[in-house]
Computed example of a mutant assay.
Amino acid sequence: MSINRISLYHLETLVWIGRLGTFAAAAKQLNTTQPTISARISELETRLGATLFQRNGRLMTLTPAGRLLLREYLPIWEQLQGALLRAAGFDHLSGVMRIGAGEIAAVICLPQLVATMKNRWPELTFEIDIQLTAQLIQGLLAGKIDVAFAAGPVAHPALLATPIGTVELCWVASPSVAERMGEVEGKAPVSLWSLPSHSPIHHMMKTALQGAFIHPPSIGLCSNVRMIIDILKVGEGFALLPKPMITRELEERSLVEVLAHNRVEPLMFHLVVRAGDNDPAVQQMLLLSRDIRF
């Protein structure tokens, strides 16, 4: 065993493979190549005299020895990261922060948060990608984004989800469609529009309609809330939408609330990061997210 020849980069590589699950994702996170990652792990295993990973298709699964090493080293690694960050200070954040957000969060809370950070740290640059929640989670796990504003529950051992607020949902339609829905007893001959099937709102919509008298003849899918709003305004169908995004339409009565008896629980939003990520920009965004008001 040659533990005196084990370097910090060997152990950092172990941490990121353990978190992200593949050599390719770890290579992207560490800004290196997959062969380099593979070589580091091979060196680490040789010097420890133990097998740390088993290949399961594309995924790399920790062995019992690998899990033990990661569990015992991770607190040390986090302490070291914290010490280095404190030594560097948080006053001069720079670099590129990659943010993933759903369309709802991007409209409601992200602009002010980004503006606050940019005002405080002018050298910090942002790259914002608008995606659905399922895609955001995959982006985080693959190291393609640093933080995600995600709708609905998020449960993954490699991720930390912090609740940041709820958004009220309501059923809406154009006045003409609302009138038709009120006139028809037992069934509304109007179509339903929704975000795609893997979105939390789609699941909440399907659950809410189970056992209800509404049986739409068809469900149209669209990945863009604003487009759904525009479709409804011209008199096509009804939808379950976040109320803050249709405030103007409700005030102007180009859209009105329907199915008032069929209320849906508010949608919880989370700020999601990789567990143990001590990047100073990520930590500052976590702190500032406590002040978000939906």
Rank of each mutant, 00 (worst) to 15 (best):
L136M: 11
A150W: 07
M117W: 13
E127V: 12
I137F: 00
V114M: 15
P163M: 00
L141Y: 01
D129H: 12
C170P: 02
L132E: 08
E127S: 15
V154M: 03
N119R: 14
Q138G: 13
A134G: 12
A173M: 02
I164T: 02
P111E: 13
K144C: 01
P122C: 07
L124M: 14
T125Y: 10
L141T: 05
R120E: 15
F126Q: 03
L113K: 06
I128M: 09
L132A: 14
I128Q: 12
Q112T: 11
T133L: 02
T116W: 15
Q135Y: 07
V107M: 08
L159S: 09
I128W: 01
A155T: 09
G139R: 06
T166P: 00
F126V: 06
A173D: 07
L160T: 05
L124H: 12
E127D: 14
A115W: 09
A155N: 10
A155M: 14
D146R: 03
Q131S: 14
R120L: 12
Q135R: 09
C170V: 13
T133N: 13
E123T: 12
L136V: 11
E123R: 11
L141Q: 05
E168N: 09
A115G: 12
V167H: 05
T162G: 00
D129R: 14
L124W: 08
E127Q: 11
V172G: 01
I164W: 00
V107S: 11
K118M: 08
V172I: 10
L124S: 12
P163N: 00
A161R: 00
I164C: 04
L140D: 02
F126K: 06
D129C: 13
V154L: 07
T166F: 07
P157I: 06
P175R: 04
L113H: 06
L160I: 00
T166N: 08
R120I: 09
V154A: 06
V172K: 01
I108K: 06
L169I: 02
V107I: 10
H156Q: 03
K118Y: 11
W121H: 15
L140Y: 07
Q135N: 11
A173N: 05
A173F: 05
L140G: 03
F149R: 01
A148Q: 05
A142Y: 00
V172E: 01
A148T: 08
E127K: 06
T166G: 08
A158I: 03
V147C: 08
A158N: 03
V147D: 01
G139A: 03
Q131E: 09
I128E: 11
A158G: 00
I145S: 05
W171R: 01
N119S: 14
A115Q: 15
T116M: 14
T125A: 10
A148K: 02
H156E: 05
P122W: 07
T133Y: 06
A148Y: 08
Q131N: 09
C109N: 08
W121M: 10
